[in-house]
Lab assay of single mutants.
Amino acid sequence: HNLTITQGKLFFHYNPKLCLSEIHKMEEVSGTKGRQERNDIALKTNGDQASCENELLKFSYIRTSFDKILLRWEPYWPPDFRDLLGFMLFYKEAPYQNVTEFDGQDACGSNSWTVVDIDPPLRSNDPKSQNHPGWLMRGLKPWTQYAIFVKTLVTFSDERRTYGAKSDIIYVQTDATNPSVPLDPISVSNSSSQIILKWKPPSDPNGNITHYLVFWERQAEDSELFELDYCLKGLKLPSRTWSPPFESEDSQKHNQSEYEDSAGECCSCPKTDSQILKELEESSFRKTFEDYLHNVVFVPRKTSSGTGAEDPRPSRKRRSLGDVGNVTVAVPTVAAFPNTSSTSVPTSPEEHRPFEKVVNKESLVISGLRHFTGYRIELQACNQDTPEERCSVAAYVSARTMPEAKADDIVGPVTHEIFENNVVHLMWQEPKEPNGLIVLYEVSYRRYGDEELHLCVSRKHFALERGCRLRGLSPGNYSVRIRATSLAGNGSWTEPTYFYVTDYLDVPSNIA
């Protein structure tokens, strides 16, 4: 807008934040220059609390790290170098490059900038070799853009010569660093050979998330399962459950009422301010606690030095998902009996873990797994792929695949051998790939016309006998059925096997 004052003059007093240069501009645009008398524009009460600059400061050096910015700028000295009290560095987070010096300023003089007072450097006698002032900004957020400017702080001049310097606002972004852990990993099994893994992005990506790394490792069953005799009275049979499938998407929606109208769909109840505040506090606490764990609990591995020492970490090797089922080394339970199943799973520490690289999504279907087997899954978020990966501390989750139908069934015939004193040795093959492992066998036998009897055969007993022995049988026709019990439950009964026990007292003698 054009402003013209045809008559009258300007009068400025007691404006401590208004620089004289701005008042002189007002004289020019209003056409009143030359009308004012000496005392109409006070030299001592206008701009006496402001830094009124008329020179431009330029930054000469900028260096960044993930949490620091090192700045240096060209030296500046007023005509009387004693008038320079120091520099004021202003900075704040700036997602967009549209910041002005006066953003967030209120009537009390406060604003949204963080201000650092910096002492002037030592003055050199040689004007050509003056030290460049600077400042190291610490405690910054990774991968965050900051708006920065600097200006001088000078003393009051009796001659009211307006001098000083100020830089333009520059924008500097800190470097990326390792992201925080992925949030809320959930693993479920939808079949006997697959596990579905879902997660949420890290709360602090500290860069642009480029991919996720998912490692999985087959877990050995508890050692007590191999040692305890679950045929003993009072000892509860062990059981394991597989990871249940995901709930429906509708039930997972946030901010939804727990109660549904019987007449149909209901609208979600909005969260109160107290609920939102509580969630923010919980989120802040979780982030602080995660940072504490990362800094205190997890110790970084030592990389190899120039002395030739090897990095103890196993090298990563990509495998196809079809090879995942046989990740671990199978060892027989008892070496003397080769027909026992290889369900003991000690994992070799030198073995390469299978892994998958996930790009542009937060889910993965891990296939080719062994049925009813526990897996430990390790999830890392990465925001750099080359020249070397920059990934987060791992988040861990466990899951067990679903049982395989008929995996616990005894394959092959049940054979028998009759000894003296009416002892019958029953023999059968253990299931080759049971659900988890076989903890015991149930032997059901009966003599024709009598009630059915049951015998429990422990895992250890089966390994020693290759089956079991029935003792003290009365003469007669017998039928026997056997079924295995694994961590997933009972298998199917075998087809009945028949044998006849004679009275050993009636056996004919070869003595003449």
Rank of each mutant, 00 (worst) to 15 (best):
E351Y: 15
L379F: 05
V480T: 06
S479G: 14
N295S: 04
G412T: 06
E258F: 09
S479H: 11
L505F: 11
Q275I: 04
E351F: 10
V439S: 06
G234V: 08
D323P: 10
W242E: 15
N360L: 10
Y498N: 06
E351T: 13
N510W: 13
L440Q: 06
P270A: 08
E249L: 09
S223L: 09
P434M: 08
L277Q: 11
G325P: 13
S223H: 11
C266S: 05
W216Y: 15
K317Q: 11
C382I: 01
V507T: 14
E495P: 06
E451P: 15
D311S: 13
A381G: 03
N255V: 05
R286P: 04
G308Y: 15
S284F: 05
L225P: 03
D204T: 07
V480S: 03
E247V: 08
D250G: 06
T497C: 15
I418K: 07
V334C: 06
L487N: 08
A336I: 10
T303G: 08
A407Q: 14
G306K: 13
F226S: 10
I482W: 01
E452P: 15
Y259P: 09
R218N: 05
V345T: 10
E260W: 13
T497L: 09
S257V: 04
V297C: 02
V329Y: 14
E227Q: 10
P205A: 08
R390L: 13
S342C: 11
K236T: 03
M427I: 08
G264R: 12
G322D: 15
P270Y: 11
V297R: 02
Y396D: 04
V414F: 04
V296L: 03
F215Y: 14
P387Q: 13
V424C: 07
G368I: 10
E227V: 13
A263S: 13
C391F: 00
S479L: 05
G472C: 06
V424Y: 13
A220G: 14
G264A: 15
R483L: 03
V424P: 03
P338E: 07
P403W: 06
K302Q: 11
I276S: 04
P332D: 09
Y504M: 06
S268P: 13
S243D: 05
L237F: 11
T210P: 13
E281L: 07
E442F: 15
K233M: 12
D229C: 04
T373V: 14
L293P: 01
Q275C: 09
S257M: 04
N255L: 03
N208R: 13
T210G: 08
A395D: 09
G308E: 15
S363M: 07
T288S: 04
R376P: 00
L455A: 12
T497G: 11
T502A: 13
T288H: 01
S474Q: 08
F337H: 13
S268V: 08
R316H: 12
D506L: 12
G449I: 11
R313E: 14
Y478E: 02
M427D: 07
E217V: 13
G207Q: 01
S486V: 01
P413K: 12
H454V: 07
E249V: 11
H416Q: 08
T502H: 06
E310W: 01
S474N: 11
Y448D: 04
V297S: 01
Q275H: 07
V393P: 14
D409Q: 09
T343M: 10
I511F: 15
P338L: 09
E388M: 10
L369R: 02
A336W: 06
H371R: 15
G374R: 14
H211P: 02
S444Q: 14
M402W: 08
R459V: 13
V443S: 00
E389L: 11
S248L: 07
P349V: 03
E282G: 07
L470W: 04
E247F: 15
E362G: 07
P300M: 12
S492L: 14
H425T: 11
P238T: 05
S239D: 15
H461W: 10
N477W: 10
E221M: 15
Q256F: 09
E417Q: 10
E224R: 10
S243N: 14
K278S: 05
T241K: 15
L487S: 07
R286N: 03
R481Q: 01
P346L: 11
S262E: 02
F337N: 08
I276P: 03
P244F: 12
S444F: 10
S342W: 13
R240N: 15
C456E: 13
H454L: 08
D385K: 13
F226H: 13
L464D: 06
Y292H: 01
P434E: 01
K287H: 02
R390E: 01
G306S: 10
N421A: 10
N208K: 15
F499P: 02
R316A: 10
W216I: 11
A330D: 04
E465C: 11
L237N: 07
C231H: 03
K271T: 04
R466A: 08
G368Q: 10
P387L: 10
V329S: 08
G322H: 13
G467V: 08
N383V: 03
S257P: 08
E417C: 05
I377M: 07
F298G: 03
L225Y: 05
S492C: 07
R318L: 13
S243M: 08
E452S: 09
E258V: 04
R446P: 00
G306C: 11
E452G: 10
T502L: 10
Y504G: 09
P332A: 15
E442C: 11
T303V: 08
R466G: 15
S367L: 10
L321W: 09
F372R: 04
Y504K: 14
S305D: 07
D250E: 13
V443G: 00
R353A: 10
P338N: 07
A263I: 11
Y259A: 11
S398F: 05
F462W: 12
H416V: 08
H425M: 08
E465P: 02
I276L: 06
R301Q: 08
R447S: 12
V358S: 07
Q380G: 06
G374V: 08
H211L: 04
G322A: 12
R481S: 13
G322V: 12
N421H: 05
W493H: 04
N206L: 01
S342D: 05
E247G: 08
H461V: 13
I438S: 04
F215M: 09
R390W: 12
A488S: 05
Q275F: 06
Y292P: 02
N422V: 02
K317M: 09
V214H: 00
Y445K: 05
F419M: 10
N206F: 04
A407P: 03
I410N: 06
T386I: 12
C391Q: 00
R313S: 08
E260R: 08
S479M: 06
L440T: 03
S509P: 10
S320P: 07
L364E: 15
A394T: 11
Q275P: 03
K271E: 02
R481I: 05
T485I: 15
P403D: 03
T343Y: 12
P434G: 02
E217P: 14
D250A: 08
T307A: 06
S342R: 13
L235R: 06
D450L: 08
L232P: 05
Y448R: 15
D273S: 12
S320T: 11
V393E: 10
S458W: 07
A395F: 03
E433L: 13
A484S: 11
E249A: 07
R471S: 07
L379G: 00
T485Y: 15
K302S: 06
V327H: 11
S479K: 05
N208H: 10
L487D: 02
H416P: 14
L228N: 11
G368Y: 04
D273C: 09
Y441I: 00
S284V: 06
T303N: 15
Q380R: 02
A394V: 07
A395R: 05
G412H: 05
P354I: 10
I366M: 12
R481D: 01
F372S: 04
L470M: 07
M427E: 02
S304L: 06
K302L: 07
A463H: 09
T241L: 10
